[in-house]
Design a binder for these strands. Structure first.
Lengths: 251, 251
DNA sequence: GAGGAACCGTGATCCAGATCACGCAGAACA
DNA sequence: TGTTCTGCGTGATCTGGATCACGGTTCCTC
């Protein structure tokens, strides 16, 4: 749809062609975010004018816990883990984000230091926006403001679910849940079952489930021994999704 | 400041006096919410026109987990616990709210069922607003929208801290933290120490720390035996705040 | 191609905290 | 005035999962 509208006035300025193209790709990229679906052209123009595109490699830290929080990030593509660490070096993964996610919003809005860290699990394409520019856009486009509130509302719900998961379910149950979540996000269905190469290492899978690496290994081996999983090098095949679901502790 | 402005036009309509007074008190009540501090008179008028005042007794359920979420609540005064339950009857308290808190926002914005329950720990005075009226106000007053986003951002941060607390700290450490949090919110300083009658029963204190009631009792007794607390009937006296802080596991 | 340095699996041990079991006190109620 | 009930403390037992210890594999680096 945006392709049909005339390019904005400044694209005609001499020497601006390059910038214009850059802006157009950003526009296209930003319009793919489901969070903003249905918002007007004006909003996307404003947003495209405020963001900077950013490519980062696997393993790059986007921001760290405790840092001052200047920016909000829009994840165009890639996977990113959010985590919290203890002073004794342990970590807990709070969430694993995929394409179209918004990150760094909560701390930025509060003006507080980052309450969690974020690092890229894969190569990522991001848009960055300074927090005051975002606040400005939120003031100008109330619709955007409501969308971003919904992003936070979703984060609240997911964190509440994480808390429930941690206190109500046993380690094997949490492992089963994590596998199912990862599989729906990263797996592809084959005739053997759902195959995926987890974006998380065993160590990280343990951090995501809140157990030790050893306990995670044991649980996976056990599931493999029981024929529910197959472990093939780096990839995991869920042979019996139903069996896995039966071990989540859900109804 | 609002007292100095003329009452709105409709207060002059015949038979409207009662409503007017009711609205004025609501206005005053709403203007005390720190969340909305600094917002304009117009906003408060709109909000006052949309909310309903509500008084509920101790023990009343405001909303339950899984219910459809129609409304948002503004807690004028009282204390309310937010909790999440497992099918096996266990519960985890997610937060204990006090005067000036906003509750029920996240589920309402998402249009999802309640992700947690809320019940009054004391008699409470609340304002209720239907979610579509709130969305309407958010669209009309972008400033309000940003404030409510900040409320959610704070919830996100607090939940992330809860997760960290649950996975990184031992039961005694979590008990110490909970006591300090309760004491700052409910305690008064005397020459013996900080005295308070917790709004939570022992059972609920256990649910808030994510341990069993027995383990909580034992931890409290132990702290009393060590001279850090004194347990006097229903009230708790923190004799050695420093000693308690030393047991939180923080730096 | 030798030597780290991460990763990963697995066995053995240990302990924090759940669970079970009980007795007591105060409140509600007849 | 007993009677039931709900909340609370505490002892005894049991166990899930942390921790420790070790060997194997892959990959990177020199």
């Amino acid at each position: 749809m945006s392709r049909e509208t005339a390019p904005p006035a400044w694209t005609r300025q001499p020497g601006a062609r390059c910038r214009a193209i850059e802006h157009l790709t950003r526009l296209e990229g930003l319009q793919e975010f489901e969070t903003f679906a249905g918002l007007g052209e004006e909003f996307f123009q404003a947003l495209a004018g405020a963001v900077t595109a950013l490519e980062v490699g696997e393993g790059t830290s986007i921001y760290r816990e405790g840092e001052p929080s200047g920016s909000v990030y829009l994840l165009r593509e890639g996977r990113i883990k959010l985590y919290r660490t203890s002073r004794r070096g342990r970590a807990q993964i709070l969430n694993v984000l995929g394409d179209g996610s918004v990150l760094g919003l909560s701390a930025s809005l509060e003006g507080e230091p980052r309450s969690h860290g974020a690092t890229a699990l894969t190569d990522c394409g991001l848009y960055v926006i300074f927090h005051n520019e975002l606040t400005d856009i939120m003031q100008r486009f109330p619709g955007a403001s409501v969308r971003l509130s919904r992003v936070l509302a979703r984060e609240v719900r997911e964190l509440e679910e994480l808390v429930g998961d941690l206190v109500f379910h046993s380690a094997p149950q949490r492992v089963a849940r994590m596998l199912l979540k990862l599989a729906t996000e990263e797996g592809r269905v084959t005739k053997q079952g759902v195959v995926f190469e987890p974006s998380l290492s065993r160590h990280e899978m343990a951090e995501a489930t809140g157990i030790s690496r050893e306990a995670l290994s044991r649980t996976l081996s056990r599931l493999a021994r029981e024929g529910i999983l197959a472990l093939d090098g780096k990839s995991i095949i869920i042979l019996e999704p139903a069996g896995l679901r039966a071990r989540t502790g859900d109804p």
